[in-house]
Design a protein around this nucleic acid. Structure first.
Lengths: 217, 217, 217, 217
DNA sequence: AATGAATGAGAGTTCATTCAT
DNA sequence: GATGAATGAACTCTCATTCAT
């Protein structure tokens, strides 16, 4: 209906969709804020709606239930990080291992810390049975990106799956430590440097090793 | 733990205390089972009590409220792992770095996987604002143990705090990956070996480096 | 009904009124369909509007509120049946009792079963405090028609009010039984025949009786 | 547990059960009162609980949900009437048709009018999709009882199923008319007498007729 | 006139916690 | 000490109704 009255080349969303997007966004932001301020236990749909500046009814026009809303918030957050990883992994293909490691880790930690608060807030969502799947899927996507990048490095003599798994684990472990610490910013620089050092050391050591078996699962 | 600090000849616990311990234990076990079966969201004190074979009233005689009960379950679990770490760290003092890394990692993963289910179940408790503190405290105790162990290794030229932080991060990262995977047992062997490889590589590389600044916080 | 009381030469309904009538009709039909499909409990104005192919806003332009809409649907249905009864009663005046009974019952059951589904759907509306009045009024109108018919039969020695009440009761009772049965069509023929038999028997017996007192109320 | 400490011959319910029964009863009574006072539409579990003198929580300890509570109230009411019918039908076996009809109708109307208010209040429950089944089942039980009674009368030359259906229909029709009237008590006497007359006339006529086909369904 | 997004009061239901037995 | 029925605050979700477009 509306599309006919708009220039063909204009890719912008219709007013209706645009307003929807704004509202959805406001709700998702509010979700994180309430999560942060009150904790998952005390998050109520009413609080979220109020903070988003809409009524509960409106919230329920965009999300079928509370769980879906929380999941959407988690998904959006995870997608941001995953995309950052996918981007570097694409860019770094063919580069030296050290550079790969450095770029990957920097991109990951930057994305994670960009809104560290959201990351922390969403832990409680991700560790619930429901939310775990989303976190897992994000992990798998990231894993595939990293594997793709590592496969472009001919020197690696071990299974790229395994190397990717180790890198990811170390990265996740460090990011959690940062986020759980009282002053992430202070530690960020040091731990990032050290994590890069660890990753480079590990990857280089992997070029001089007899091949190792698969680790998928 | 407590037994060591009490005179050997002290009379055993009174029947009452013994019965209490049994009940508390049953409740804590039941907590984990309900957590696993129903998720934190659907865990109710009544369900826990029923599964533990006591009444809600009794449950409230041992725990002031639901949160305290969940915290106690988390604490008990974390303490078990922390103690395992403290033990190896004490034992491994003065040993070569490779041996330290190998023993530490094995002990940690063994403890974590011993009742992997409980570990998974308790994630949702640990990632709530309330429970985060307990997880953090456990992390600090472990950290101190690892630092103590690393300090006994003269070759290390960097801050032991930093090295300990990295080790812990990698260990935690790998354990999460294992617990979140669909078939932890299959991957355990491979990932443990690779984690030990990574840790050894890292620690050895740290012996040839100019010292690096502190990472506490 | 209205057409008779208007001058024949009056111009037809304006396009606007005609469109209104179509819309009102669509809404009333939709009401019955939703009632049938979802039950009164789950009937919402939005559902009715959607089914009628209009927006909720439009629905509220024709009915002040949900209750009024439900009442209107019930009234229209009842009026149809009442008019059918009024028609036969007028036609049958002066005929033999047996013929009266037979014609009345056939007309009533035909009207009721014509859209049996609507009848069933509207029971839930009619048995609510609000709707009961409408059903009652329809009953009274029918009663008056039947009384009028019976009064034209000189043989009847009892109060026509009472006889009418009995006939109506039996008719209503049988129609409910039909509508509540799983296969009304199968039973319709048999029960109609039997009801006619019962009515004839009763009315004939009433011609040989000493008069009986009034039953209005 | 308790049974062991009670005399074997004492058939009374245990205190717990007795209290439960009292509470359930209070809730069911309150349901009818609220139904009567506010209508089904405005009946809320909180209102019912308040009127019953308990908390909502307690209400939900005895009924899984609102619908179940309404159904229970309907069932209890219907059972009372059904049992009254079953009783007369048993008692009247073998008696003359006139006596059967008279006793059946009196028993039915007495039972229905005993708490006429409840009957009226529960119409709205019985005409909802959910409640219709209960009403139907009660109807079937009554039907079987009446059929059983009629079968004991040798003179009847038509299908007892059909005769029972007609009797029931007429009885139901008359009772509805009474309950919907503004002053049931005034009409009760007249309509009962007339209904008995109608039933006797009908049944007697049935003894002189060629047999008629079945009406089950 | 028509639309349908937004509103928010209010309903059903759950469950942590208490306390009389 | 143990029990579990009772409580009622609080939560999620629905839907009649309005009104800017």
């Amino acid at each position: 209906m509306l599309s006919r009255s708009r220039p063909v080349l204009e890719p912008r969303k219709s007013p209706v969709q645009a307003r929807s997007a704004v509202t959805v966004n406001a709700i998702l932001e509010a979700t994180i804020q309430v999560l942060l301020q009150a904790g998952k236990e005390r998050l109520t749909t009413t609080k979220v709606a109020r903070r988003a500046g809409v009524s509960v009814g409106t919230l329920y026009q965009y999300f079928p239930n509370k769980t879906a809303m929380l999941k959407a918030a988690l998904k959006r957050h995870m997608d941001g990080i995953t995309e950052a990883i996918e981007l570097v992994c694409r860019e770094q293909k063919g580069n030296p291992l050290d550079q790969m490691a450095s770029a990957l880790i920097s991109a990951f930690l930057d994305a994670k810390m960009r809104d560290a608060k959201a990351s922390v807030a969403l832990y409680s969502v991700g560790s619930d049975i429901e939310g775990a799947k989303i976190a897992q899927e994000a992990g798998i996507r990231s894993n595939q990106a990293i594997v793709g990048m590592l496969e472009s490095a001919r020197e690696l003599t071990i299974d790229p799956q395994l190397a990717a798994a180790m890198l990811q684990s170390a990265m996740v472990g460090v990011s959690r430590r940062l986020l759980e610490s009282t002053a992430p910013e202070n530690q960020l620089h040091t731990l990032r440097g050290e994590l890069i050092f660890l990753a480079c050391t590990y990857l280089n050591a992997c070029t001089k090793r007899p091949s190792v078996q698969n680790a998928s699962g």
